[in-house]
Design a protein around this nucleic acid. Structure first.
Lengths: 92, 92
DNA sequence: TAAACAAGTTTATAATATAAACCAAATTTT
DNA sequence: AAAATTTGGTTTATATTATAAACTTGTTTA
């Protein structure tokens, strides 16, 4: 009947992050913060969770002298997102 | 950009309950428990929350000698569900 | 009549989300 | 050039949530 919703994606902010990365394939921390309207603290935590599950990769470098964290979606993340959407459809 | 997701609906079990009631306009506790696969305790709590928000009505009666709890979706609930779906679309 | 069952509810616990507080380096202000 | 502010985050504390386990009340069944 109802498919299980991946709890990692069934979260407003993590879903938003994935959604941005789905369309962009690369976005840095500041961009994600502005695009989602999240606080930096919250975003930091949720990025970590997505990275731990390997739904995204996180690359830390510098842009000039400022630190820059770049995120990209992985194949695993893409599949999880698609599965999540499929599961959601059973509810809508 | 991303619309806010109503936290009352952004919950696997509550969404499932609303989904059932959307198609049925009336379902009792046992039916909901079986349709959603939830435990009775969890279902009881989530039904209360939906009822407190007046997304559903709850009517307690008896079927023969057994208690029977009948749930129906309200107009408010219907609107909230539609809004939730609209909001979700901004993420997908 | 005692044990098992049905239909829920209440309570305890674990997990989650989120903001507030913090940190280090760079930049700007005085 | 010191002090204050800003930038780009991270860590920690707290409040909320979800969920299962335990419990209750009444009913069958053995």
């Amino acid at each position: 009947m109802f498919k299980k919703l991946d709890p990692l994606l069934h979260s407003e902010l993590r879903l938003a992050v994935m959604s941005v990365l789905l369309n962009l394939e690369e976005a840095d921390f500041v961009y994600l913060r502005e695009a989602t309207g999240a606080t930096a603290g919250n975003l930091s935590v949720q990025i970590d969770k997505l990275a731990s599950a390997e739904y995204i990769t996180v690359e830390k470098g510098f842009k000039g002298k400022k630190p820059q964290t770049t995120c990209r979606i992985t194949e695993t993340g893409l599949k999880a997102f698609k599965d999540y959407v499929d599961a959601l459809k059973t509810y809508l």
